[in-house]
Amino acid sequence: MSRVARSMAPSHAEDVVQETWAAVIDGLDRFEGRSSLKTWVLRILSNRAKTWIKREKRLDLEHIFTEEAAVEETAVAPERFSRIGNWSAPPAAWSERTPEAIVLRMETGMLLARVVEELPQAQRIVVTLRDVEGLSSDEVCDILGVTEANQRVLLHRGRSKVRSAMERYLSEP
């Protein structure tokens, strides 16, 4: 919960978590099991975080998503391709080839967690909910109130950055 809160509203994560717990405890009797408990809790958390974001930035989350998705950005640095679009600096093999070994190698995940924290806001939120927390694309769009297309563009850029950060730690010389 605090991980998701930090991804959405880093400077008010504690407030968001506290408000969410209070709302969850108050509303538990009304939980009808139409979604999983996890998505229900995260929807409450997302609403609290949105309020903080709006208070702080005077912008709706949806607006932030649309703006960030509209920025031109490539998955891989353009200089790694030739003029006709073939690899000129192809990806090197990695020293670790299982997720567990990678996490261990990246200081038991601390470095990896930092990579996520340093993503731009909307990418960070999508990567945290989709990949770290394991929610589906439908759940994420529903919880955040963003379009599937924007969600997918931001997921793509976020994941591409995570891969390229891992490359720095794991590429064999």
């Binding site: 990695w94 080839r97 299982t98 997720p99 567990e100 990678i102 996490v103 990246m106 038991t108 995940g109 990896l112 967690a113 996520v116 990567v127 990949d131 770290v132 394991g134 994941r159 995570v162 891969r163 891992m166």
Partner: peptide, 10 residues
């Protein structure tokens, strides 16, 4: 692997 490693974060 990048996606799977994110899921494997403790």
């Amino acid at each position: 692997l990048a996606v799977d490693a994110l899921a494997a974060l403790p």
